[in-house]
């Protein structure tokens, strides 16, 4: 074209016009607060005032002091356990719905899976306290049946209780993407594998599982990222040893009156989450290639 190509085609221009409200919205409500937190993390708190000299002191603290290291590690550990637990428990349920439930009953099943969302998360946490508690359902039954004399104490107010409660809360988020991935698998692929000589186990490992991988990866990411930042659950069922990094972030912003350190901890946690998620995606990338 002798007159040269226009810099922005009309389609691109109208596209930009269409996305710009969303973009501005995202910028204002997401990018701006994050930028503010980033800035805050490089300042320091001096009793009542913020010292605006930029410094890495908060990050040094966040990464070197044993308490923050340990809380971060514990949070990662709890989140990973929750992720593994939800995927391991969610997969068979999703598999059952995708392969065993007749198609006309599937909407009902999916609907039933979402029932826990009808109640507030706090109510569900308190229900777990009732179930796991000292005078709770499990202990009450076991004592009543004479199986144990003293109520078990190790089932509430520890990391296990946090993992259990979080797993229960996040299970539907794992089931749904796995179900979608399994449901999308062409049944003739499974028959083909069987036809080519596979028993159920090999077929599952070589066909079903790899093809369900995008759903499993989605489930893992969906569960892992938010749980690491959860602070209500550890606060209510975690007991003294079940606290997570988000509880410390809350403490820094409130009681400890050290918002800059809180900001540095929050960003460090974000960094750790991003890093682990990226490593995970890198490790499973071969299962995420485009399908047919």
């Amino acid at each position: 074209m002798p007159w040269g190509r226009p810099r922005i085609s009309p389609e691109a221009a109208s596209g930009l016009v269409l996305i710009s409200p969303t973009f501005i919205y995202a910028l204002l409500l997401l990018a701006t607060p994050i930028a503010a937190v980033v800035l805050l993390s490089f300042w320091t708190q001096d009793y009542l005032d913020l010292q605006r000299t930029l410094t890495l002191a908060n990050y040094q603290k966040a990464w070197s002091e044993p308490i923050y290291q340990s809380l971060m590690l514990r949070s990662v550990k709890i989140s990973l356990l929750v992720t593994v637990a939800t995927v391991l428990i969610g997969f068979p349920i999703a598999y059952y719905i995708a392969f065993m439930v007749p198609p006309r009953h599937r909407p009902i099943w999916l609907f039933l899976i979402t029932i826990p969302f009808w109640t507030s998360y706090l109510v569900r946490i308190f229900l777990w306290k009732v179930i796991l508690g000292y005078g709770g359902v499990i202990n009450g039954s076991l004592v009543g049946l004479g199986i144990i004399e003293e109520p078990l104490k190790f089932i509430l107010y520890n990391q296990g209780a946090v993992v259990l409660t979080l797993s229960h809360a996040w299970l539907p988020f794992a089931i749904l993407p796995i179900f979608v991935a399994l449901n999308k698998i062409d049944r003739s692929l499974l028959e083909a594998a069987e036809d080519l000589g596979d028993g159920p186990v090999r077929r599952f490992l070589h066909i079903t599982l790899p093809l369900a991988m995008p759903g499993i990866v989605a489930a893992a990411i969906i569960v892992f990222i938010p749980t690491i930042g959860d602070y209500v659950t550890p606060r209510l069922v975690g007991g003294p040893n079940g606290l997570m990094i988000a509880n410390m972030i809350e403490v820094q912003f409130k009681k400890a009156n050290n918002a800059p350190l809180g900001a540095a901890l929050a960003l460090s946690a974000m960094f750790v989450v991003t890093l682990i998620s990226l490593l995970f995606l890198l490790a499973v990338r071969k299962y995420l290639r485009p399908n047919q």
Partner: peptide, 10 residues
């Protein structure tokens, strides 16, 4: 405050 948070976290 700082000590108490440490103690609570073990």
């Amino acid at each position: 405050i700082a000590e108490f948070e440490m103690i609570k976290a073990g």
